[in-house]
Protein backbone atom coordinates (compact mmCIF):
# COMPACT_ATOMS: atom_id res chain seq x y z
CA UNK A 1 0.00 0.00 0.00
CA UNK A 2 1.20 3.47 -0.87
CA UNK A 3 0.32 6.45 1.33
CA UNK A 4 1.02 10.05 0.50
CA UNK A 5 0.47 12.07 3.66
CA UNK A 6 0.04 15.84 3.95
CA UNK A 7 2.53 16.65 1.23
CA UNK A 8 3.62 20.21 0.62
CA UNK A 9 5.73 21.08 -2.39
CA UNK A 10 6.72 24.58 -3.46
CA UNK A 11 8.89 25.22 -6.52
CA UNK A 12 11.33 28.17 -6.41
CA UNK A 13 10.41 29.28 -2.87
CA UNK A 14 11.00 32.98 -2.23
CA UNK A 15 11.30 33.75 -5.93
CA UNK A 16 8.78 35.65 -8.06
CA UNK A 17 8.25 32.38 -9.93
CA UNK A 18 7.23 30.61 -6.70
CA UNK A 19 4.59 27.96 -7.35
CA UNK A 20 2.87 25.97 -4.67
CA UNK A 21 1.95 22.64 -6.27
CA UNK A 22 0.75 20.79 -3.20
CA UNK A 23 -0.28 21.98 0.23
CA UNK A 24 -1.62 19.26 2.50
CA UNK A 25 -2.12 16.71 -0.27
CA UNK A 26 -2.95 13.14 0.74
CA UNK A 27 -3.64 10.00 -1.27
CA UNK A 28 -3.81 6.30 -0.42
CA UNK A 29 -3.37 3.61 -3.05
CA UNK A 30 -4.20 0.10 -1.79
CA UNK A 31 -2.40 -2.97 -3.18
CA UNK A 32 -3.72 -4.20 -6.50
CA UNK A 33 -5.34 -0.92 -7.49
CA UNK A 34 -4.94 0.45 -11.02
CA UNK A 35 -5.26 4.18 -10.51
CA UNK A 36 -5.71 6.63 -13.38
CA UNK A 37 -4.83 10.24 -12.71
CA UNK A 38 -6.16 13.00 -14.95
CA UNK A 39 -5.98 16.77 -14.74
CA UNK A 40 -4.98 19.81 -16.75
CA UNK A 41 -1.40 20.98 -17.17
CA UNK A 42 0.06 22.26 -13.91
CA UNK A 43 -2.42 20.35 -11.77
CA UNK A 44 0.42 18.39 -10.17
CA UNK A 45 0.08 14.97 -11.82
CA UNK A 46 3.69 14.54 -12.85
CA UNK A 47 4.94 16.24 -9.68
CA UNK A 48 3.05 13.60 -7.71
CA UNK A 49 4.77 10.78 -9.59
CA UNK A 50 8.15 12.48 -9.20
CA UNK A 51 7.58 12.84 -5.46
CA UNK A 52 6.67 9.15 -5.14
CA UNK A 53 9.72 8.05 -7.16
CA UNK A 54 12.02 10.40 -5.26
CA UNK A 55 13.03 12.39 -8.35
CA UNK A 56 12.04 15.50 -6.38
CA UNK A 57 11.68 15.96 -2.60
CA UNK A 58 8.66 17.26 -0.72
CA UNK A 59 8.99 20.26 1.61
CA UNK A 60 6.72 18.71 4.23
CA UNK A 61 4.72 15.56 4.73
CA UNK A 62 5.62 11.96 4.22
CA UNK A 63 5.44 9.11 1.71
CA UNK A 64 4.94 5.57 3.03
CA UNK A 65 5.15 2.22 1.30
CA UNK A 66 3.64 -0.70 3.21
CA UNK A 67 3.39 1.53 6.28
CA UNK A 68 7.08 2.49 6.26
CA UNK A 69 8.43 5.90 5.33
CA UNK A 70 10.61 6.07 2.22
CA UNK A 71 11.40 9.77 2.67
CA UNK A 72 15.08 9.10 3.34
CA UNK A 73 15.54 6.78 0.38
CA UNK A 74 17.18 8.17 -2.75
CA UNK A 75 15.47 7.75 -6.12
CA UNK A 76 17.57 4.77 -7.19
CA UNK A 77 16.91 2.99 -3.88
CA UNK A 78 13.15 3.48 -4.26
CA UNK A 79 13.45 2.26 -7.86
CA UNK A 80 14.10 -1.24 -6.50
CA UNK A 81 10.36 -1.71 -6.01
CA UNK A 82 9.10 0.72 -8.61
CA UNK A 83 8.88 0.25 -12.36
CA UNK A 84 8.46 3.46 -14.33
CA UNK A 85 7.58 4.11 -17.94
CA UNK A 86 8.02 7.64 -19.28
CA UNK A 87 6.25 9.66 -21.93
CA UNK A 88 9.43 9.68 -24.00
CA UNK A 89 10.08 6.12 -25.25
CA UNK A 90 13.82 6.95 -25.32
CA UNK A 91 13.97 7.12 -21.50
CA UNK A 92 13.04 3.49 -20.87
CA UNK A 93 15.67 1.78 -23.02
CA UNK A 94 19.30 2.10 -24.13
CA UNK A 95 19.35 3.00 -27.84
CA UNK A 96 22.94 1.91 -28.56
CA UNK A 97 22.49 -1.52 -27.01
CA UNK A 98 20.71 -4.51 -28.50
CA UNK A 99 17.28 -5.77 -27.44
CA UNK A 100 18.99 -8.74 -25.80
CA UNK A 101 21.34 -6.49 -23.83
CA UNK A 102 18.47 -4.22 -22.79
CA UNK A 103 16.40 -7.15 -21.55
CA UNK A 104 19.43 -8.58 -19.72
CA UNK A 105 19.96 -5.23 -17.98
CA UNK A 106 16.31 -5.13 -16.90
CA UNK A 107 16.52 -8.74 -15.77
CA UNK A 108 19.46 -7.87 -13.52
CA UNK A 109 17.58 -5.07 -11.72
CA UNK A 110 18.20 -5.27 -7.99
CA UNK A 111 21.24 -7.45 -8.62
CA UNK A 112 24.93 -6.60 -8.27
CA UNK A 113 25.96 -5.79 -11.84
CA UNK A 114 29.36 -7.27 -11.02
CA UNK A 115 31.91 -9.04 -13.17
CA UNK A 116 29.75 -11.96 -14.30
CA UNK A 117 28.68 -11.79 -17.93
CA UNK A 118 25.83 -9.34 -18.36
CA UNK A 119 23.92 -11.23 -21.03
CA UNK A 120 22.28 -14.35 -19.68
CA UNK A 121 22.34 -16.88 -22.47
CA UNK A 122 20.13 -19.30 -20.53
CA UNK A 123 17.36 -16.67 -20.45
CA UNK A 124 17.22 -16.07 -24.20
CA UNK A 125 14.36 -18.53 -24.71
CA UNK A 126 12.36 -16.79 -21.98
CA UNK A 127 13.07 -13.37 -23.53
CA UNK A 128 11.88 -14.65 -26.92
CA UNK A 129 8.65 -15.83 -25.30
CA UNK A 130 8.06 -12.43 -23.66
CA UNK A 131 8.75 -10.61 -26.93
CA UNK A 132 6.43 -12.95 -28.84
CA UNK A 133 3.67 -12.04 -26.37
CA UNK A 134 4.05 -8.40 -27.40
CA UNK A 135 3.00 -9.39 -30.92
CA UNK A 136 5.34 -6.86 -32.56
CA UNK A 137 7.70 -9.32 -34.23
CA UNK A 138 10.58 -8.39 -31.94
CA UNK A 139 11.33 -12.01 -30.99
CA UNK A 140 13.54 -12.40 -34.09
CA UNK A 141 15.39 -9.14 -33.52
CA UNK A 142 17.25 -9.86 -30.30
CA UNK A 143 20.55 -8.60 -31.71
CA UNK A 144 19.08 -5.43 -33.22
CA UNK A 145 20.00 -2.12 -31.59
CA UNK A 146 17.02 -0.58 -29.82
CA UNK A 147 17.73 2.83 -31.38
CA UNK A 148 16.55 1.53 -34.73
CA UNK A 149 13.11 0.50 -33.44
CA UNK A 150 9.97 2.62 -33.79
CA UNK A 151 8.62 4.64 -30.86
CA UNK A 152 5.85 2.13 -30.24
CA UNK A 153 8.21 -0.84 -30.29
CA UNK A 154 10.54 0.95 -27.91
CA UNK A 155 7.71 1.82 -25.55
CA UNK A 156 6.49 -1.80 -25.56
CA UNK A 157 10.03 -2.89 -24.74
CA UNK A 158 10.28 -0.25 -22.01
CA UNK A 159 7.04 -1.56 -20.50
CA UNK A 160 8.34 -5.11 -20.61
CA UNK A 161 11.62 -4.04 -18.99
CA UNK A 162 9.90 -2.03 -16.26
CA UNK A 163 7.78 -5.03 -15.23
CA UNK A 164 10.36 -7.78 -15.73
CA UNK A 165 11.47 -8.14 -12.11
CA UNK A 166 8.97 -8.22 -9.22
CA UNK A 167 7.92 -4.67 -8.37
CA UNK A 168 5.41 -3.17 -5.94
CA UNK A 169 4.36 -0.26 -8.14
CA UNK A 170 4.15 0.46 -11.81
CA UNK A 171 4.31 4.17 -12.54
CA UNK A 172 3.08 5.23 -15.98
CA UNK A 173 3.87 8.84 -16.79
CA UNK A 174 1.72 9.73 -19.85
CA UNK A 175 3.32 6.70 -21.46
CA UNK A 176 1.06 6.73 -24.54
CA UNK A 177 1.16 10.49 -25.18
CA UNK A 178 4.04 10.44 -27.69
CA UNK A 179 2.58 7.63 -29.81
CA UNK A 180 0.17 7.61 -32.73
CA UNK A 181 -3.43 6.63 -31.81
CA UNK A 182 -3.19 3.04 -33.04
CA UNK A 183 0.14 2.34 -31.34
CA UNK A 184 -1.15 4.06 -28.19
CA UNK A 185 -4.09 1.65 -28.17
CA UNK A 186 -1.74 -1.35 -28.52
CA UNK A 187 0.45 -0.12 -25.67
CA UNK A 188 -2.63 0.52 -23.50
CA UNK A 189 -3.93 -3.02 -24.08
CA UNK A 190 -0.48 -4.39 -23.29
CA UNK A 191 -0.29 -2.31 -20.12
CA UNK A 192 -3.66 -3.59 -18.96
CA UNK A 193 -2.66 -7.20 -19.64
CA UNK A 194 0.66 -6.89 -17.79
CA UNK A 195 -0.99 -5.22 -14.80
CA UNK A 196 -3.58 -8.01 -14.60
CA UNK A 197 -1.16 -10.90 -15.20
CA UNK A 198 1.39 -9.68 -12.68
CA UNK A 199 -1.23 -8.28 -10.28
CA UNK A 200 0.59 -4.97 -10.14
CA UNK A 201 -0.40 -1.85 -8.30
CA UNK A 202 -0.30 0.80 -10.98
CA UNK A 203 -0.60 4.58 -11.18
CA UNK A 204 -1.16 6.04 -14.62
CA UNK A 205 -1.08 9.71 -15.47
CA UNK A 206 -2.81 10.38 -18.76
CA UNK A 207 -4.30 13.17 -20.82
CA UNK A 208 -6.50 10.68 -22.59
CA UNK A 209 -9.78 10.71 -20.64
CA UNK A 210 -11.09 7.68 -22.51
CA UNK A 211 -8.13 5.55 -21.38
CA UNK A 212 -8.58 6.80 -17.83
CA UNK A 213 -12.24 5.75 -17.90
CA UNK A 214 -11.84 2.48 -19.79
CA UNK A 215 -8.84 1.13 -17.93
CA UNK A 216 -8.05 0.87 -14.27
CA UNK A 217 -10.07 0.37 -11.13
CA UNK A 218 -10.06 3.94 -9.85
CA UNK A 219 -9.92 7.40 -11.35
CA UNK A 220 -8.94 10.66 -9.71
CA UNK A 221 -8.88 14.14 -11.16
CA UNK A 222 -6.40 16.68 -9.89
CA UNK A 223 -6.81 20.43 -10.05
CA UNK A 224 -4.30 22.86 -8.60
CA UNK A 225 -2.90 20.27 -6.23
CA UNK A 226 -6.26 18.98 -4.94
CA UNK A 227 -8.24 15.86 -5.71
CA UNK A 228 -11.50 17.21 -7.17
CA UNK A 229 -12.95 13.89 -8.29
CA UNK A 230 -12.38 10.38 -6.96
CA UNK A 231 -14.27 7.40 -8.22
CA UNK A 232 -13.72 3.66 -7.78
CA UNK A 233 -15.45 0.26 -7.78
CA UNK A 234 -18.96 -0.05 -9.27
CA UNK A 235 -19.25 3.68 -9.68
CA UNK A 236 -16.06 3.65 -11.81
CA UNK A 237 -17.42 0.83 -13.98
CA UNK A 238 -20.49 2.92 -14.84
CA UNK A 239 -18.48 6.05 -15.47
CA UNK A 240 -18.68 7.49 -18.99
CA UNK A 241 -15.99 9.49 -20.73
CA UNK A 242 -18.49 12.34 -21.31
CA UNK A 243 -19.07 12.72 -17.55
CA UNK A 244 -15.38 13.15 -16.93
CA UNK A 245 -15.01 15.46 -19.90
CA UNK A 246 -17.86 17.66 -18.59
CA UNK A 247 -16.22 17.92 -15.20
CA UNK A 248 -12.85 18.57 -16.78
CA UNK A 249 -14.25 21.42 -18.89
CA UNK A 250 -16.11 22.93 -15.95
CA UNK A 251 -12.93 23.03 -13.88
CA UNK A 252 -10.96 24.54 -16.74
CA UNK A 253 -13.59 27.23 -17.17
CA UNK A 254 -13.49 28.02 -13.46
CA UNK A 255 -9.75 28.40 -13.78
CA UNK A 256 -10.30 30.75 -16.67
CA UNK A 257 -8.43 28.87 -19.35
Amino acid sequence: MLEVRDIRKIYNPGDVTEICVFDGFSLTVPDGEFLSIVGSNGSGKTSLLNLICGSIRQDAGSILVGGESVDREKDYVRARRIGRVYQNPALGTCPQMTILENLSLADGKGGRFGLAFGVRKNRIAAYREMLRDLGLGLEDKLSVKVGSLSGGQRQALALLMATMTPIDFLILDEHTAALDPRTAETIMLLTDRLVREKRLTAMMVTHNLRYAVEYGSRLIMLDRGKIVFDCAGEEKKNLRTEDVLDLFNRISVECGN
Partner: peptide
Protein backbone atom coordinates in the same frame (compact mmCIF):
# COMPACT_ATOMS: atom_id res chain seq x y z
CA UNK B 1 27.57 1.62 -21.20
CA UNK B 2 23.98 2.21 -20.11
CA UNK B 3 25.09 5.14 -17.93
CA UNK B 4 26.42 6.91 -21.01
CA UNK B 5 23.56 5.86 -23.24
CA UNK B 6 20.61 6.61 -20.96
CA UNK B 7 21.34 7.69 -17.36
CA UNK B 8 17.63 7.58 -16.47
CA UNK B 9 17.61 3.84 -17.10
CA UNK B 10 20.46 3.31 -14.63
CA UNK B 11 18.31 4.90 -11.92
CA UNK B 12 15.38 2.72 -13.02
CA UNK B 13 17.62 -0.33 -12.58
CA UNK B 14 17.99 0.66 -8.90
Amino acid sequence: RAAGDNPVLVTSLA
